[in-house]
Design a binder for these strands. Structure first.
Length: 492
RNA sequence: GCCCCCAUCGUCUAGUGGCCAAGGACAUCGCCCUCUCACGGCGAAGACAGGGGUUCAAAUCCCCUUGGGGGUACCA
């Protein structure tokens, strides 16, 4: 087989949807697996909806995921340009060729007329298809129509009998009836731009694409495209239609289900490695016991034969879990690199971080690491490590710091800390135990109040770790601050 | 309306006629660890949509029904 060439062809009308990202990933994996070429092409023929900003967003999203392309925007390549809007001359050329061949013709029907006829067909229980009335217009008729101010579209003259089989690598052969399923569809709009079904064929053929891997939503359009390939004498590529991604209610995954744009996941602190791993499992599976795959493993193991046929529900909880798995696998300096921007954005750390503070932040991350699902969690979970005016959670304070012995306990701990040669478990635990007997309480009843006093919440890393990280000075100040707060609020 | 695709635990899936009284992962629940929360360990519950065939044997093949998804544009 000749070298594999695949492509991802997003239309820049918004953000990169996770479904699109998954399609890009499968193409990328397939290319890498076969040492082939991954082409990126921007399908911006819909001038009204396409924007440059949206293109950049998609490029950024792909880069974040690590899905680098071999040919395309910013990379060049021998089959450019890679923006459809810059390939108009090519589409015109091949449309003209089809007309010469008698496989395309001008159509002067208006959208209104078309719609009316379509409604009539539905009412009669028939297939909705163009009736072909402009297919054999005489020159005079054409002139008359034009004189009425009508601007024509160009339609493909489709086959009027037989069937068009689609050989699909994941679904097998799917056969479509030419008469009822492939009508004379528009290939050039009246605004002078080609339609998707036409441009995609010209581009894929000219770019020498060998495998078209795309969403199942394109399956029904494939016979139309195949007829164009054949009419133009192009070699028909192999097709693989991968299942759609659904929301929890089984409808197509969309914004109303929550985050769907890759950019958004990036901003919320999902690691590319986790995104890629999770996305790979949507519609593909390897064996019965493995769910964690490195990119290298995916590249090695990916195959279209193992792509599933049924649609997959996007499970954000599993993605979160997986992100946690990858966060735990990071070395601390790596975690620091991804966490730092979040802390800076929340004003917990300065733009310029001194070596000492970095050293401290690294230790904080060591404690936080197993507790993170999203990198962004470092803000919520770690703020009290960086600021002294951390907020107290009112309900927690009320629940834990309003016991009769609270004040005595805090004072006791304050004294212990003040005289402590070092703040580690080895020294402190025996001291705390003395307090336990003195107040007739359990360890938890001593530690929880300290925790709330030092952090403002009842959730934190182990208390001895917190104590050690904070250091004597800050611990004493915080206990004092808490005592003051309690008195001011008249809680003790 | 018409056409196409699909159908295993709540979810992602393993399963390609006997190895399946259906395996794994997430989620859920319980226990252990324990100063809280995580992490980790152990365990529980949980599915072949329904009905007909074919076969010695069906989750696996065929048909029907039902359900879900997609297409049916001068969107891509």
């Amino acid at each position: 087989m000749s070298a594999v060439r695949v492509r991802f062809a997003p239309s820049p009308t918004g953000y990169l949807h996770v479904g699109g990202a998954r399609t890009a990933l499968f193409n990328w994996l397939f290319a890498k697996h076969h040492s082939g070429v991954f082409v990126l092409r921007i399908e911006d023929t819909d001038a009204a909806r396409s924007t440059e900003a949206a293109t950049q967003v998609i490029l950024d999203a792909l880069e974040y995921l690590g899905l680098d392309w071999d040919e395309g925007p910013g990379r060049g390549g021998d089959y450019g340009p890679y923006y459809q809007s810059q390939r108009l001359d090519l589409y015109q050329k091949y449309a003209a060729k089809l007309m010469e061949l008698g496989r395309a013709y001008e159509c002067y029907c208006t959208p209104e007329e078309l719609d009316q006829r379509r409604q009539e067909q539905i009412k009669q229980g028939k297939d909705t298809r163009y009736d072909g009335r402009c297919r054999h217009l005489s020159d005079q008729e054409r002139l008359d129509l034009k004189a009425q101010g009508r601007v024509p579209v160009i339609r493909f003259a489709s086959l009027e009998e037989g069937e068009t089989p689609v050989e699909d690598l994941v679904r097998g052969t799917v056969t479509f009836d030419n008469v009822t399923q492939v009508d004379d569809f528009v290939i050039f709009k009246s605004d002078g731009m080609p339609t998707y079904n036409f441009a995609v064929v010209v581009d894929d053929a000219l770019m020498k694409i060998t495998h078209v891997i795309r969403g199942e939503d394109h399956l029904s359009n494939t016979p139309k495209q195949i007829q164009i390939y054949e009419a133009l004498g192009f070699e028909v590529p192999k097709f693989a239609h991968i299942p759609m991604i659904l929301g929890p209610d089984k409808s197509l995954l969309s914004k109303r289900h929550g985050a769907t744009s890759v950019t958004q996941f990036y901003e919320e602190g999902y690691l590319a490695s986790a995104m890629v791993n999770y996305l790979s499992l949507l519609g593909w599976g390897y064996d019965d016991s493995q769910t964690i795959f490195s990119v290298d493993e995916l590249t090695e193991k990916f195959s279209l034969e193992r792509v599933s046929k049924n649609p997959a529900v996007f499970d954000i909880q599993k993605l979160e879990w997986m992100n946690g798995v990858y966060i735990r696998e990071l070395a601390l300096p790596e975690l620091y690199d991804v966490a730092l921007p979040y802390w800076q954005k929340a004003n917990l750390l300065p733009a310029e971080v001194s070596p000492a503070i970095k050293e401290y932040a690294l230790r904080v991350l060591g404690e936080l690491q197993t507790r993170l699902k999203l990198v962004a969690d470092v803000i919520e979970l770690g703020q009290y490590f960086f600021i002294d005016d951390y907020p107290y959670q009112p309900d927690i304070v009320r629940k834990i710091l309003t016991k009769p012995q609270t004040e005595d306990v805090l004072n006791y701990v304050h004294d212990v800390i003040k005289d402590a040669p070092q703040l580690d478990e080895e020294y402190l635990k025996p001291q705390f135990k003395i307090g336990l007997e003195k107040f007739g309480i359990k360890m938890g009843e001593l530690i929880q109040p300290i925790r709330v006093a030092l952090t403002g919440t009842n959730v934190s890393p182990g208390i001895y770790d917190v104590l050690e990280l904070l250091g004597k000075e800050r611990v004493l100040a915080r206990i004092e601050r808490t005592l003051t707060m309690l008195r001011e609020e008249e809680l003790i």
